[in-house]
């Protein structure tokens, strides 16, 4: 199973090269606002991670022993989800809330925020957790009962709501049901899942990258783009040809995916989440990642174990 992973990474690299096309195209659009995604680029969770806690007197578990043996936390993450896990192609650094959580967890377990991110995508999360290609999955991973059969979840650590973006002169959308019969761009995973659940009559058009979703709306290929509100607000804020609607829907409880066979390790991670919500690390991380993209004060962090499947 580890064999396909490098290929996958190569595919992602290709997607990066490809993603540059719509970005370049948007530069030539003559908009007075700054093109590209400066808001994503300036995010940096390093401070929040540096101030995060280190776990003491953690019980021995097979997973923890393995992670400490490696000296690094291997996680399944995303590098194409603005605000949560987005790689800056220039620096190679990944920024966002999810990668911050992973780094905080690594620091909690190892003392240093050493994280190895494997971009397996939404398709392979369960499989690579089961075969121990990764130790944890922090990748806008929505907790669900069917997945809880295969993996354990610690969380939720974040509850996302989906929003809807249309073109500047696009259709009126006041609620998710208005998407019925429309072509709606989504990224695979949590966003696609939430849309299909909330409005099965919408036609989901799946693009790998947020920049492609945005381009598809601008070019009129789709009538709307639905994603996590953090992603959408960040994008709409910098592109005059996109308009954020007021409609939000669903609630996707994101959890940390864990191997099924180590309940003691799950307790450690739940303890970690309780610790960072209690000591302010969670709020600091939010303010340095998702916060700048959405307006308003930081929400109350969700209580671990509060949804079915966790």
């Amino acid at each position: 199973m580890p064999a396909p992973l490098p290929r996958r990474t190569a595919l992602r690299a290709g997607l990066f090269a490809a993603g540059a096309v719509p970005l370049l195209a948007s530069c030539s659009g003559g908009t007075t606002r700054t093109a590209g995604n400066p808001a994503y680029a300036t995010l940096d969770q390093a401070d929040a991670v540096a101030r995060g806690p280190v776990g003491v007197d953690l019980p021995e578990t097979p997973t923890l022993r393995r992670i400490r043996g490696q000296g690094v936390l291997r996680q399944s993450g995303s590098v194409t989800t603005p605000g949560f896990g987005m790689m800056n192609p220039a620096t190679g650094k990944i920024t966002g809330f999810d990668i911050g959580i992973a780094q905080l967890l690594a620091k909690y377990l190892l003392g240093t925020p050493e994280v190895d991110t494997i971009t397996g995508g939404a398709d392979t999360r369960e499989a690579i957790l089961q075969n121990q290609s990764v130790d944890v999955a922090v990748c806008t991973y929505t907790i669900s009962k069917s997945r809880a059969r295969l993996v354990s979840f610690a969380g939720p650590y974040y509850v996302a709501r989906s929003g809807i973006v249309v073109g500047a002169d696009g259709p009126q959308v006041t609620a998710v049901r208005d998407l019925a019969g429309k072509d709606v761009a989504v990224q695979p995973g949590a966003a696609q899942e939430a849309l299909q659940k909330a409005c099965p009559q919408a036609r989901a058009v799946v693009f790998e990258e947020s920049s492609q979703c945005a381009a598809a709306v601008r070019q009129g290929r789709v009538q709307a783009w639905s994603a996590n509100t953090a992603i959408l607000l960040g994008k709409a804020a910098v592109d005059a040809r996109l308009r954020m609607t007021l409609a939000t829907y669903g609630s996707s409880p994101f959890g940390i995916g864990l191997p099924k066979d180590d309940p003691a390790f799950k307790q450690i991670v739940v303890g970690f989440l309780q610790r960072i919500t209690a000591d302010g690390s969670w709020r600091r991380l939010w303010e340095q990642t998702v916060g700048p993209l959405v307006s308003g004060p930081a929400p109350e962090p969700p209580r671990p174990g509060s949804v079915p499947g966790s």
């Binding site: 939404a122 499989a127 069917s146 696609q192 492609q212």
Partner: peptide, 24 residues
Amino acid sequence: GAAVGVDELTLETRSFNLETAEPI
């Protein structure tokens, strides 16, 4: 097509997996 919004075999398979968590 799965990466660029065409509902072909791989994309449908991924959607199926997303719902059922049965990757294999």
